[in-house]
Nucleic acid binder design. Sequence first.
DNA 1: CTTAAAATATGATATTTGTCATGGAATCTT
DNA 2: AAGATTCCATGACAAATATCATATTTTAAG
Lengths: 225, 225
Amino acid sequence: MGKCEQCIIREFNSLKSLTKEELMRVSACKTGKLYRKGQVIFEEGETLNGVYCVRDGVCKLTKLSENGKDQVVKLVVKGGLLGKRSLVSEQKTNLSAVALNDMEMCFIPKSEIMNDLSKNPKFTMDVLREMANDLKESDVNLVNMAQKSVKRRMAEILMYIHDNFGTDDEGYLSIILSREDYASIVGTATESAIRILSQFKKEGLISTKGKQIKIEDYGSLKWIE
Amino acid sequence: MGKCEQCIIREFNSLKSLTKEELMRVSACKTGKLYRKGQVIFEEGETLNGVYCVRDGVCKLTKLSENGKDQVVKLVVKGGLLGKRSLVSEQKTNLSAVALNDMEMCFIPKSEIMNDLSKNPKFTMDVLREMANDLKESDVNLVNMAQKSVKRRMAEILMYIHDNFGTDDEGYLSIILSREDYASIVGTATESAIRILSQFKKEGLISTKGKQIKIEDYGSLKWIE
DNA sequence: CTTAAAATATGATATTTGTCATGGAATCTT
DNA sequence: AAGATTCCATGACAAATATCATATTTTAAG
């Protein structure tokens, strides 16, 4: 397994603010973990004893609603850090994490990173900033959920995935989700999600190949009400 | 104006982690501000140059949706701290704050508090913890918004206000909101909010006197689907 | 390769929620 | 106190979304 000091991934998250020495210590005690598509990384209510740094693959963070349905709260890709919040608040995690494809992660034990958190102000401030950002994003999500139609939310998640996670060489969204996942992100029934995607297809806004989705008319997608 | 060192309010927020010396400095440079019911404290997009500590009164934090409607993201009462996020992220605020009744606040300039944030790890960790909590709360809100019916959300906000902000001696919720505010918290049309409250009243779950609302049957409210 | 299971698709229908219109009640202003 | 204005309430209807049923297609398993 590689060394954190040389790992480019950390540039994407707050680990970039660790000093060289700190990184070397982290590197020495981290462990690599592999997860297969569909595998649960951790589950709501568990006590996490460390943070996960995503090296490759994608996962969803979900929360169980009282009606028994899972709601996807966030998608996390390469460079993402899972378990920040639990680390900081010293509470059990309030979200579950499930791999959407095969994943490669580094696991850094709590004891190691907590030490850095309390002693390296640059690192702390960086975590703080990241958290502030998450919070802002969260507010936007809330407003979207409260005020926009399902169709609009679906259009937005397609554009979001396109813009943030990119496409393969044929132009298909590089993150592949089931219709059920789409429903759970958008916050609607699976059938409704399917219907809307079908409609988008009919209208030429997207095309599909199996589960893969390609945005064909980004401009019009933007104007969906 | 009182001194922060002696102010009991600070026990409710992360300012409690400041040392005596820090508090004295803060106290020396803080200013008192009064806002009348309905007055805007700050508006989405503004640059805040400090944080507000709520001494008395209630305000709503709102975000404008693209459809032109305001969405209430959070209610803040005595002890709450406004502007944390902007302080930390050094970005313009993404929310507006509006007084729901007459308010009394202390304003602490950014320069003073930023210094403490970078030098007092106990304080930083406390802010971090508070932020982690906000984030968790935010996830819950998102799931509620996505998965629960308007009626259910209305029932929950009534119980939330009851549990967190209390009632007056007659049992009426101590926070008084317009129907429009309720609609904007729950994320629905004003008419729908009115209709649901009327229905609750008919069913004996609540009673009203002007704008005041009293929960009459908490148990049943809990079971509203 | 065949069969079973899961995911996708679509119709029919019920329910929820939004919109528009209108009238009354409360509150503010002068 | 009268008028103006805002807020609350409710009906009628339209639109969005959920639910149930049932094919069809795709994927997984043996």
